[in-house]
Design a protein around this nucleic acid. Structure first.
Length: 308
RNA sequence: GGACGGGUGGGUGAGUGGCUAAAACCAGCAGACUGUAAAUCUGCCGCUCCUUGCGGGCUACGGAGGUUCGAAUCCUCCCCCGUCCA
């Protein structure tokens, strides 16, 4: 019978200092960092995803980044299984896991589990997408309403991505989304989870985001994008859709000035941070700290929480 | 000095007499989201009052006057901005 071990989660919007806090907590707790970020799982996309590499890791082992090649599809389910394996590994070596989480869905998939749902079917999705293109989003939503009224009433008609997923689940399993979800999911067991949320004042966060975008450019982000393009990675590969990569490619093609690209990247990052905050506010049991993770006072408060 | 063009809500920008607190988009704020999630989508967005209603009041389209039952929209003068001619 295994006792519950401590699992520390550091969550918050982009640029709130999660990585720095994660490293400092792991250092003081004898732990290792598990990254929970949907973009850092892609190899070669380093600067724009704010990956912590090499000396930046300050000697603390990091896991769950650089997992797949740019043209591979990665999902919440895949993250969950890799994270479970990583947790088992740390448990065997008696290391405290410190999860730095920026992707709320992946964190939830790990902590609360995922329903027994089918994996995506590209063929079906492509068929549905083309239907939506020709006949409109409303049409697809009506199709869903016929197949699964409950799901249709919960999903906005304009949200084609979620409508398609719901139809996909229904078609592939013959069961409704509600049935599949009500069948339950396997939550993570055996851990005492301590969640620490970083929530800097909004204006400060936005200012930090803007400065960080410029710092990334200063660190050679544009060169990274040039290299990625030179590698011949498909332009529609998912990581090229991450914030900044598309804008910088447009700049390299001469379609945007660098200043325009920077402005757009800063904007998109601010919008993204806001969505992260909205998601994490719903996360249960979070101990919120108002400030940045690299602030010594915040770090000290976080350590107290983590040791509690 | 002269000739045109233009000044609209935080920004861009529609709107040429009533249907206009004023399209649309952006920003901002709030929210949803169980396998694309750095994605996708929804709502609010001048101020204010209340018996929260396709409710009342106030303020608003550079400024000041004027025409009109009624003006962002028409007239007059003035102030700015842009382009061109001197």
């Amino acid at each position: 019978m295994s006792r519950a071990e401590r699992l520390v989660v550091v969550l918050g919007p982009t640029a709130s200092g999660k990585s720095a806090l994660g490293i400092s907590l792991a250092g003081q707790l004898g732990g290792e960092v598990l990254v929970c970020d949907s973009t850092q799982v892609y190899r070669h996309f380093d600067i724009g995803t704010a990956k912590v590499l090499g000396a930046g890791q300050k000697g603390i082992a990091h896991h769950l980044f650089d997992l797949v090649e740019p043209e591979e599809v990665f999902t919440a389910g895949e993250y969950r299984s890799r994270a479970l394996a990583a947790l088992d590994d740390l448990r065997r070596r008696e290391k405290t896991p410190v999860i730095t989480a920026g992707t709320g869905l992946y964190l939830r998939a790990l902590l609360e589990g995922l329903a027994e749902a089918p994996a995506r079917s590209e063929e079906l999705r492509e068929r549905l997408r083309s239907r939506a293109r020709v006949r409109g989003a409303e049409y697809l939503h009506k199709v869903l309403a016929r197949l699964d009224f409950e799901a249709a009433s919960r999903i906005a008609a304009g949200d084609t991505q979620k409508v398609i997923r719901a139809i996909e689940m229904r078609v592939l399993t013959g069961r409704s989304v509600g049935e599949i979800h009500r069948a339950g999911r396997q939550a993570l067991e055996g851990y005492r989870v301590i969640k620490i949320g970083l929530l800097p004042p909004r204006p400060d966060l936005y200012a930090r985001i803007e400065a960080r975008v410029r710092a990334m450019l200063g660190a050679g982000w544009l060169g990274e994008v040039e290299d990625l393009v030179a590698l011949g990675i498909a332009p529609d590969a998912k990581p090229f859709q991450f914030i900044g990569y598309g804008e910088l490619r447009e700049h390299l093609r001469g379609e945007l000035s660098l200043d325009e690209a920077i402005g757009m990247i800063q904007q998109a990052t601010r919008n993204f941070a806001k969505r992260q905050i909205t998601w994490f506010r719903r996360e249960p049991g979070v101990n919120w700290l108002v400030g940045f993770g690299d602030d010594p006072e915040i770090a000290s408060a976080a350590l107290d929480l983590a040791r509690s």
